[in-house]
Amino acid sequence: MSRSDVLVDADWVQAHLNDPGIVLVEVDEDTSAYEKGHIRGAVRIDWKTELQDPVRRDFVDKTGFEALLSEKGIANDDLVVLYGGNNNWFAAYAYWYFRLYGHQNVKLLDGGRKKWELDSRDLVEDVPSRPKTSYSATEQDASIRAFREEVVEAIGDKNLVDVRSPDEFTGKLLAPAHLPQEQAQRGGHIPTARSIPWSKAANDDGTFRSDEELRDLYQEAGVDLSKPTIAYCRIGERSSHTWFALHELLGLPDVKNYDGSWTEYGSLVGVPIELGEAK
């Protein structure tokens, strides 16, 4: 797999804005971002209200995903180009999610909304209308999603990559620094995890670092690229960004995202937790 199979740059998007068969999708946590302006022709997916089950802590199921994509006017053979704010966290999460439900023809806009804005490219308020489709999803691809039992078993065996900020890793903070620190679960990290904040995989403008830089980054932090890897963060969206770097850009065959992440692990009874720097 090459980088161009999974990533497009802003010039490419600009040149293909009117192509049939290509659907731009903005995915944000802050949905007011889309309302203030989005790339022309882009539809919106709301990370919170449309991709999450409203009651249980889980994703919408296969039927729910099919209904969502049908409603958005996305067909099985469309090329979906995802982008969003927060350095593409939620877009990367949606990318992983599209893959989870079997949509193979999907790419990320490198740098997402931030790069687009910093380039002073056009944003519009017009909301496109797309005719409904009959989207059909596959069952979830278990090879890219990790659950808690597998994570506990992976301690000291598989690579565990903690992509939160250094202070979250050591236990000093329980959430990123732009959020009030009101969380109640224990701080720290999963024993044997390596600390490689997601941000190290990205440049200041939100674009991904080169394959060579990425490979050096993970290897220097003690990740054995020949072994299976599980990435986690606080709730699984920053780790989708790292899953993308490891699985899609570097092409490692066995990389899973643990979407339960620290909000689940740090609340489990009886599991080991390590504090301080990586050991």
Binding site: N86, P166, D167, K172, L173, A177, H178, L179, P180, S199
Partner: peptide, 29 residues
């Protein structure tokens, strides 16, 4: 505008977009 918070070692910690009033805010250590 984008405001990025870097810790004492220069490591990225968080990022916010400034409001209509140009404001950014972090809850740091």
């Amino acid at each position: 505008a984008y405001a990025r918070l870097l810790d004492a070692t220069g490591e990225f910690t968080g990022e916010v977009v400034t409001s209509d009033e140009g404001i950014f805010r972090f809850f740091a250590a």
